[in-house]
Simulated scan of single mutants.
Amino acid sequence: MRTEEIRQAAIDSHDRDAGKFEEWYHALDRSRFSNAFTYGRSKIDALVGELFGSLPKDGKVLDVGCGTGEHLQRALKAGLKAYGVEPAPAMLEVARRNVPDAEIKQGVATELPFKDGQFDAVIMVEVLRYLDRADTDKALKEARRVLKPGGQLLVTLVNRWALDGFYVLQRARSLVRGKQFDAVNPYCLFHTPASAKRDLKQAGFDEARTEGKLLAPLRIAYKLNERFGGWLASKVERADDAINRASLAQPFAGHLIAVGKVAKR
């Protein structure tokens, strides 16, 4: 029951916040420095763009937890065939309105409504963080199932020891409230680069690697004041990106990105 409650809390949260995500993506179109979401998402989007650029012409991409459809639009612009899965009704409605040329189904990461070996790439952006261990394992195995030989999976995760201190904050919330999640603050599963690679290998991926993004605790600056956060981010961005290239920085980055590859047969 706990696994289902955790999953439903995440769905309810995103169903309620569909409009907010649309606003954030409009802000991202104006400037990646607009707020903490836009700055962090711009770093992830750059990696998603690299993945899309590496795929064959007319390749098929599945966005699991596609939200408002932003990455589906990017896939179509890259000349790819776009498919999405989204469990939150409000998000699903927005995605279908925004991206009518994509095939978007209602569903969950743990039971993907597609046949085996269909996709060249699967992405899960800010999905697994909201699932518990059992659901995460199922979701990774489902992604592996629907990938073609040579296919790739890109997922984002939350670093346990990120310098923004989110793990400490989440632990404090759970101690004060006597529970690990609620409708306002959904459950969060934390990872390290080592655990991310291990999970991908256990799910059947032949190769696994990780990258870190957003090392500087800029989310704290944005929370203090968005204008100040944006100014600070613009000043430290180049140095922060350079430091993130070092493997030693990965365990402390605000975003942990893991990529799993299926061997070509």
Results as ranks from 00 to 15, higher is better:
M91E: 08
L189S: 10
G117H: 11
L157N: 00
P193E: 08
E70K: 11
L153I: 13
H71W: 13
A263L: 06
P193H: 07
M1W: 09
E22H: 11
E86N: 01
A253W: 05
L55F: 05
P251A: 10
K223D: 10
Q250I: 12
Q106M: 12
T3S: 15
L153A: 12
K261M: 09
Y25W: 14
V48Y: 02
G254A: 03
R177V: 02
D240L: 10
A78I: 04
Y39E: 02
E4R: 13
I11K: 15
G254H: 01
G49C: 12
Q73I: 06
D199L: 07
G65N: 09
P56F: 14
E207R: 11
E207S: 11
G69L: 05
E126S: 12
D199H: 06
E211L: 14
V61C: 12
H14G: 10
A172T: 10
V61L: 14
V262T: 14
L189Q: 13
N225G: 03
A10N: 11
P217I: 10
L154C: 08
M91G: 02
W231R: 06
L256M: 06
S54A: 15
R145Y: 06
I243K: 01
A143R: 01
D240I: 02
R2D: 14
R219Q: 13
L112W: 08
